[in-house]
Amino acid sequence: NQASVVANQLIPINTALTLVMMRSEVVTPVGIPADDIPRLVSMQVNRAVPLGTTLMPDMVKGYP
């Protein structure tokens, strides 16, 4: 099973992602692959992302 990117904390709308905000976890449904975490750094979320939420491609501005 492939690990996905999961919010490690509440991420407010328009926040630029940092490594501490994300963790990898095997979840269903599958979200953004954990391998993409380095690419996500400094990209902004377009909505508030609660703790434990799987990051989906449509939540991150400019992804992929």
Rank of each mutant, 00 (worst) to 15 (best):
N1R: 07
Q2V: 15
Q2C: 06
Q2H: 12
A3E: 12
A3D: 06
S4E: 01
S4C: 03
S4G: 05
V5A: 09
V6K: 03
V6Y: 02
V6Q: 03
N8P: 01
Q9I: 05
Q9P: 01
L10T: 13
L10H: 10
I11R: 00
I11A: 01
I11H: 01
P12A: 06
P12L: 10
P12Q: 08
N14A: 09
T15A: 13
A16P: 15
A16W: 12
A16V: 09
A16H: 15
L17F: 02
L17W: 02
L17P: 02
L17D: 00
T18H: 06
T18C: 04
L19M: 14
L19F: 11
V20Y: 15
V20W: 07
V20C: 05
V20D: 11
M21Q: 05
M22G: 01
R23P: 03
R23C: 04
R23V: 06
S24D: 09
S24I: 11
E25Y: 07
V26H: 11
V27P: 01
V27F: 02
V27L: 05
T28D: 10
T28H: 13
P29H: 04
P29Y: 03
P29C: 04
P29A: 04
G31I: 01
I32C: 03
I32E: 01
P33K: 12
P33Q: 08
A34H: 07
A34P: 05
D35K: 10
D35E: 15
D35V: 14
D36W: 11
I37W: 03
I37G: 04
I37P: 01
P38K: 11
R39E: 08
R39I: 14
R39K: 12
R39M: 11
R39S: 13
L40G: 00
V41Q: 07
V41G: 02
S42H: 15
S42W: 12
S42G: 15
S42L: 11
S42Q: 10
M43V: 07
M43S: 07
Q44G: 04
Q44C: 04
R47N: 08
A48S: 13
A48R: 12
V49Y: 02
V49A: 04
P50M: 10
P50Q: 13
L51N: 11
G52I: 02
T53H: 08
L55D: 02
L55A: 02
M56I: 06
D58S: 14
D58Q: 09
D58L: 08
D58C: 04
M59V: 05
M59L: 05
M59E: 03
M59S: 05
M59D: 13
K61N: 13
K61S: 10
G62P: 06
G62C: 05
P64E: 15
P64D: 14
